[in-house]
């Protein structure tokens, strides 16, 4: 366990979601489901946690009568991710 790291990002699935979104403008639920290999329920719970923390924005719309949930990383989420990566690098190379 790595202390002093953002606990919200210190979770495999939440970290996967944020890492996928960092290089994208936006991604929908089905893309995140496919790329993370998580279950629908778990993914939904973790997305909500990231949303509640203000790390991602979630928008819902209908395309051809099917609901589409799109997620995008917010500036707060980008900052948290950058700090998390910097923190991890310190553990790997303390100098």
């Amino acid at each position: 366990m790595l202390p002093n790291l953002n606990p919200l990002l210190h979770n495999q699935l939440r970290l996967s979601i944020v890492s996928l979104l960092i290089g994208l403008e936006k991604a929908d639920f089905s893309f995140l489901l496919k790329e993370t290999g998580a279950s629908k329920g778990n993914l939904s719970v973790q997305i909500n946690k990231l949303k509640d923390a203000g790390y991602i924005s979630v928008s819902k719309r209908f395309v051809n009568n099917y609901p589409k949930t799109e997620c995008a990383l917010s500036p707060k989420g980008i900052k948290a991710f950058e700090e998390y990566v910097a923190g991890i690098k310190k553990y790997i190379d303390p100098s």
């Binding site: 790595l2 970290l15 996967s16 890492s19 996928l20 290089g23 790329e35 990566v85 991890i88």
Partner: peptide
């Protein structure tokens, strides 16, 4: 952790 981040970024 870092490997996971790198893998996900590469994947996307």
């Amino acid at each position: 952790q870092l490997q996971l981040i790198e893998r996900m970024i590469k994947q996307s």
